[in-house]
């Protein structure tokens, strides 16, 4: 067991855990944040996506100790006080979430994409989300949600 200190959605936490525990399990089991999902455990599906120091990563492939000192943002950290983030709002309105199991990861990947390219082309959206598999939507409505979110996040906000 090792002590691991990290900032999760703005809060600093210290946890005792095996250093090779997957960050995914640390988040779900020790931090009780179950919005981060496991779809494959092999880096393929992106359901476990989180932002680690602002970078999109698959938390199933990060040993807990490598997250020591890191800033982690999960789906629970995307909304503010229960208010939907514009990306979440667009996924909701545009039918970007069906069964919803890929949705948290998809929203984090979108968040990361829009940080990198505020005005992504469709190709950039396709590439940016290619690590997040969705079996329900055929992605069309997800692209639509992302394009809508581009418009929304362009508008000045006060955060």
């Amino acid at each position: 067991m090792t002590q691991i200190t990290l900032t999760i959605n703005g809060e600093t936490k210290t946890i005792e855990a095996p250093p090779m525990k997957r960050l995914l399990d640390l988040i779900r089991e020790d931090l009780h944040l179950t919005g981060t999902k496991e779809g494959c455990g092999e880096g393929e599906c992106g359901s476990c996506s989180v932002l680690m120091n602002g970078e999109l990563v698959n938390s199933c492939l990060v040993p807990a100790l490598q997250a020591n000192g890191a800033r982690i943002c999960t789906i629970e950290g995307i909304s503010t006080k229960g208010r939907l983030h514009p990306i979440q709002q667009c996924f909701l309105e545009r039918g970007g979430a069906q069964c919803g199991i890929c949705t948290p990861g998809m929203i984090l990947a979108t968040h990361h994409l829009l940080e990198k390219y505020p005005q992504p082309t469709l190709l950039q959206i396709q590439e940016g989300l290619a690590g997040n598999l969705c079996r329900c939507t055929g992605y069309t409505r997800i692209f639509d949600a992302v394009q809508q979110a581009i418009l929304k996040t362009q508008q000045p906000t006060n955060n």
Binding site: L33, T34, T36, K37, I75, S79, T103
Partner: peptide, 13 residues
């Protein structure tokens, strides 16, 4: 839908 986009929907695991 809102529970799903917020990550609050509870799946069995």
């Amino acid at each position: 839908g809102a529970a799903k986009v917020l990550g609050q929907a509870k799946y069995v695991d």
